[in-house]
Write a protein that binds this DNA or RNA. Structure first.
Length: 718
DNA sequence: ACGCCAGAAGTTTTT
DNA sequence: CTTCTGGCGT
């Protein structure tokens, strides 16, 4: 279908259910689609976009916001397939903001060529900010400070606002770090991920004229995964929809899994209060999973207290029961996974199969086992590619071409590959820049005038001039720019020495390919735009359905996807739910989020769902006995089938079922005394006869694991 | 100036 | 157990 071809928009409705049709055909005014897992949400949104376009809404007036780039690309393809063309804007919140801030840089009071700082750039800047605020680095762990700043930005609290509101000493001190950090970013023309959202939200609030223009441009706004939007995203969406009120939010509170990142579930829960005229459509029929899978998942999620009950049903066949498999340890579990997949490989393509886990660290054993069985796999971790040293270096070079004020990037590569500019010289150069109020790059250009640099001065100057030469040709195609830079910088030499077979060369080649693809897709593109675009890749963006391989990913990355066969590993207390949610001071809502995470994983499965756990797991070098996840106990017995990889006579079981020992009188919560550490309370006990261990939180605040056979503790009070 | 080694620290999830 | 950092030796 091409634009202009006469067509009946009702063709778009023929295979939809009544509630789906309601959502698709609703024209003006706010719309909330509460879409349960597997209820055809993506299809509904896509159809809605197509329907709007075919019933008179100019395609360019439609904005669809997705959670990942991958989801955006897929939706765009589907919209094109529905005959709408490339008119609608389909992207993530971050990509939208990056683009709009570039387009309206003057109004946003920003340079167009700003750098986007990733996690590690940001941590470096925070360390520097802590130093500048003259605070003890030990007291201010960068990652903790980062969390505070990130949270503030999500709440649209600028450094100035945060400072004004800081009343106690800790927050006043953090306000100083935040202020210093913001100054650092400003000096470097850099934004972090949260800035993209905060800047855009604040800009829309204060610049009425721009808001008005954007409201007219994006007359129809659709937001997917609304349950995982944070406050800043909420404000952006709201500002864009104030005038026309054509906001369509879709989501599922049961699939909210990003509260830790600032997502605010009340955005979706209170949609009807925010938009009193809102029409609400519920999609509760599941088209994805078998009855067995769906009822197991439904039973699990029903254990959440903070939840509006909701029925999810399916007309799909009953299917096989959900298998729960108890393995001996992580290696055994990985073997089980690999063997099971090998058996299935004859009857279905590997790309049908996915393995989910709670933490990335669990991939190693799985990879080894899959390799042994000769099973092709891909791991969803696009971000990791961009964290490789050679990639970060190459991008740092490109970033200073575009934005020479980007000090984090400049310092990263000023002597890499080595060009005789040592640490001392760099320190002196930075000191000179600070003293004269220049950027480090500006100071480097005049290195010959800095006496302190001595013999390295010509090298520094040569480096700066090399960057300047690149700058003069920076409107060349991205790929050519990249290759030129590799050659001139000496990186190519390093790569040549590493050899054609090396990972480094393969990675850089992949980057070159990415650059070339960008050039082809965007004839009017720019290096700036490409750099900003690739700063926003997510793990799942790298997943390729046609790869013919098993897909491995975290449960978080699995959201929005579906696979005929799903294996979820590590169903153990401490892993899923994660130990953090089990901690004594953990908020109960953390446990509920873990349960939703498990629910999300289970509901990705179409036909076969297998969940496994290990009795022993080695984490950071220590083997721990694991108890099964409480979530397994919450599954319905008649829909699940529990199997054990070993007879119960195995040594470990005997060990664990040993006769009650002298430690059997110990109970959780008892007050005890330790000769070295003093008083404390038992937080957990792991009974293994003589080998019984227990966790103790001492009054000093320290928590310790004690092997009771050796630790002579004394019970003070029952 | 540079590379190596040893010790430390940090391990949830990510746009 | 891994990865990174900082210090030390050349």
């Amino acid at each position: 279908m091409t634009p202009g071809t006469p067509s009946n928009p009702d063709d778009l409705l023929t295979d939809l259910t009544p509630p789906q049709i309601e959502a698709v055909t609703h024209r003006d005014g706010p719309l909330l689609v509460l879409a349960g897992a597997g209820s055809g949400k993506t299809r509904t949104i896509t159809r809605r976009v197509a329907y709007l376009a075919r019933t008179g809404v100019p395609a360019r007036n439609i904005l669809a916001i997705t959670f990942t780039n991958k989801a955006a690309n897929e939706m765009r393809e589907r919209i094109v397939a529905a005959g709408v063309g490339r008119g609608p804007t389909v992207c993530t919140f971050h990509a939208l903001c990056a683009r709009l801030l570039r387009e309206h840089a003057d109004r946003a009071d920003l340079p167009k060529n700003y750098s986007i700082f990733d996690q590690s750039d940001r941590l470096k800047a925070i360390r520097e900010a802590v130093a500048r605020a003259e605070l003890a680095a030990e007291r201010f762990v960068p990652s903790a400070v980062e969390g505070v700043i990130s949270q503030a930005k999500n709440q649209l609290e600028t450094a100035a606002v945060y400072t004004a509101e800081a009343s106690d000493w800790p927050s006043r001190t953090l306000a100083r770090v935040y202020t210093a950090y913001e100054a650092l970013l400003a000096e470097q023309n850099a934004l972090d991920f949260d800035d993209l959202l905060m800047r855009m939200a604040l800009l829309l609030r204060r610049d009425e004229e721009l808001r008005d223009r954007l409201e007219d441009r994006f007359r129809y706004v659709l937001i997917d995964e609304y349950q995982d939007t944070n406050h800043a995203q909420y404000v952006i969406a709201h500002q864009l929809a104030v005038k026309h009120q054509n906001i369509c939010a879709t989501g599922d509170p049961d699939q909210s899994i990003y509260a830790w990142r600032g997502a605010d579930i009340s955005n979706i829960m209170e949609f009807e209060q925010d938009y009193p005229q809102a029409k609400v459509v519920r999609l509760e029929q599941n088209y994805r999973s078998t009855k067995a899978i769906l009822s197991a998942a439904s039973r699990l999620i029903a254990a959440n207290v903070q939840r509006r009950t909701k029925g999810l049903w399916t007309e799909n066949p009953q299917g096989d029961p959900v298998r729960v498999v108890e393995c001996v340890d992580a290696d055994d579990e990985a073997d089980f996974v690999a063997e099971t997949i090998a058996e299935m490989a004859g009857s279905r393509p590997l790309s049908d199969i996915a393995i989910f886990y709670r933490v990335n660290a669990m991939t190693r054993v799985l990879e080894e086992a899959l390799l042994r069985e000769g099973i092709a796999y891909q791991i969803a971790r696009g971000v990791e590619f961009y964290n490789r040293k050679e990639i970060k270096d190459a991008l740092a070079y490109l970033r200073i071409i575009v934005n020479p004020a980007d000090e984090v990037s400049l310092l990263r590569i000023i002597n890499d590959p080595p060009r005789g500019i040592g640490k001392t010289s760099v320190d002196r150069l930075v000191a000179q820049a600070r003293a004269s109020g220049q950027t480090v790059f500006e100071a480097a250009l005049q290195a010959d005038r800095i006496d302190a640099l001595k013999r390295s001065a010509p090298k520094v100057k040569a480096f700066a001039e090399m960057v300047q030469e690149w700058q003069q040709q920076s409107d060349a195609p991205v790929r050519r720019m990249l290759e030129e830079m590799l050659l001139d910088s000496g990186m190519q030499g390093v790569l040549d020495r590493a050899g054609l077979e090396s990972d480094q060369v393969a990675n850089v080649n992949e980057l070159i390919t990415a650059a070339q693809e960008y050039d082809q897709a965007n004839p009017d593109g720019s290096l700036t735009e490409w750099l900003q675009q690739i700063s926003l890749v997510s793990d799942v963006d790298s997943v390729d359905e046609s790869s013919g391989a098993v897909t491995l990913m975290t449960l978080h990355a699995a959201k929005g996807l579906e696979f005929p066969v799903v294996l979820i590993v590590g169903l153990e207390d401490g892993l899923l739910p994660h130990a953090r949610a089990l901690a004594l001071r953990a908020d109960p809502s953390e446990m509920e989020e873990e349960r939703r995470l498990c629910f999300v994983g289970m509901t990705r499965a179409q036909q076969v769902l297998i969940m496994s756990r290990a009795r022993y797991r080695t984490l950071r070098g220590v083997t721990e006995r694991m108890t099964q996840s409480r979530f397994l106990a919450e599954l319905p017995g008649d829909e699940t089938l529990t199997e054990s990889r070993r007879e119960s006579s195995d040594a470990f079981d005997e060990w664990s079922q040993a006769a009650p020992s002298e430690f059997s009188r110990l109970r959780k919560g008892q007050l005890i005394r330790h000769p070295m550490f003093g008083f404390g309370r038992l937080t957990w006990i792991d009974p293994h006869g003589q080998r019984t261990r227990a966790g103790v939180r001492f009054t000093t605040g320290v928590e310790k694991t004690l092997i009771l056979e050796y630790a002579k503790i004394q019970v003070i009070k029952e």
